[in-house]
């Protein structure tokens, strides 16, 4: 029986927009609008969606980097939503993050050895020699060299910097890592190296990943299950294979169809989505996707579709789930 590592219950994150002389809240950006998930130990849960769908906010909210507007976070059977900073400290070492741009997340004046060591200093009672040894072994673990210890971030290429970011995240032996667009800034040949490294580390240390990306190919490669988001809402959640072979939500279908294939075929018909993504300050009523949906009806503009099961571990939020999308 697989154990649940992380439970996310109805998480909402709204950002107020203030205006006027009294700085009253005029409206809100509903970045994440009710997401519930169970993340199983050792799995990779992919989160995909276009810009502004709330995938990054979800990742930050789960790690406690953003206070929640509403909802509950349960990590290893403990409710961590209401904990104070001090109470959270033991949990924080279990949860780490890998960022999109490692250059922006590294201090340009700090040697990378020191950057990786920093977290160990705070959390682990090790002496300087042990720490150094630990950092050196981490460097080798992520495919860098021991002599890189004393170098500065600018001396590394993009792929190497991302490896430093991974070493930093691994320093405290966490069980859960959020990868936020971790390979998006890399060239494909290097991206494949980093993806393979993440997979290797996962099986070695039984890591659980929440892998956030806009690239559906990358997400398919690394994920066991995939969540599709649109405008802060959950659209579809399914085991990776089911989602790519048999997507049921019209948005997932259109998203998959929009991706250019690496097989030359000018005749391939895409499902065309009209228009642009609406602003999250003023999301459409009813189903958030109805303004661009090819099969939307009157019902979709009035009531929000329920989250329903459509197969083994396969869920979607659509009134017409299961009906063929003819495009």
């Amino acid at each position: 029986m697989p154990t649940t590592l992380f439970q996310v219950k109805n998480v909402k994150k709204h950002y107020p927009i203030k205006g006027g002389i009294l700085r009253r809240t005029k409206s809100e950006v509903k970045a994440v609008n009710g997401v519930s998930l169970e993340i199983t130990k050792g799995e990779t849960l992919g989160v995909v969606g276009e810009s502004g769908c709330g995938k990054s906010t979800l990742g930050r909210a789960i790690l406690g980097l953003e206070p929640l507007t509403e909802g509950q976070l349960i990590f290893a059977d403990q409710d961590i939503t209401q904990l104070s900073r001090r109470q959270l400290k033991p949990f924080k070492r279990e949860m780490q993050m890998i960022f999109q741009d490692p250059y922006a997340s590294l201090n340009p004046r700090q040697r990378i050895g020191a950057a990786i060591e920093e977290a160990i200093k705070i959390h682990n009672p090790m002496n300087a020699k042990q720490r150094r040894e630990k950092v050196l072994s981490l460097l080798e673990e992520v495919g860098l060299k021991r002599e890189h210890y004393g170098r500065f971030p600018h001396e590394f290429s993009g792929g190497q910097r991302q490896r430093i970011g991974i070493a930093r995240a691994l320093a405290l032996q966490p069980s859960f890592i959020v990868c936020d667009e971790a390979v998006s800034a890399l060239d494909v040949s290097v991206q494949a190296q980093v993806l393979n490294l993440l997979k290797k580390l996962q099986s070695k240390y039984e890591l659980t990943y929440l892998f956030i990306s806009h690239d559906l190919g990358v997400v398919r490669y690394i994920s066991d299950r995939v969540l599709v988001m649109y405008l802060g809402n959950m659209v579809e959640l399914a085991p990776s294979e089911a989602l790519y072979e048999n997507p049921v939500h019209p948005y997932t279908q259109a998203l998959l169809s929009a991706i250019p294939r690496t097989v030359p075929n000018k005749e391939r018909e895409r499902i065309k989505l009209m228009g642009e993504i609406p602003s999250p300050t003023d999301p459409p009523k009813g189903c958030a996707f109805h303004t661009r949906c090819p099969i939307a009806t009157e019902l979709c503009s009035q009531s929000k579709p329920e989250w329903r099961a459509v197969g083994e571990g396969h869920y979607a939020a659509c009134h017409y789930v299961g009906e063929e999308l003819n495009a």
Binding site: S157, G159, Q160, V188, S189, V190, Q191, A192, Q193, L195, N196, D215, L216, G217, V218, R220, Y221, Y244, L256, I259, R261, T262
Partner: peptide
């Protein structure tokens, strides 16, 4: 090294080095 969205899922062949 391009991850595909359809077809068989195979191990990505990264180009070594940078």
């Amino acid at each position: 090294s391009v991850p595909k969205v359809e077809g068989e899922l195979t191990q990505l062949q990264a180009i070594p080095g940078s």
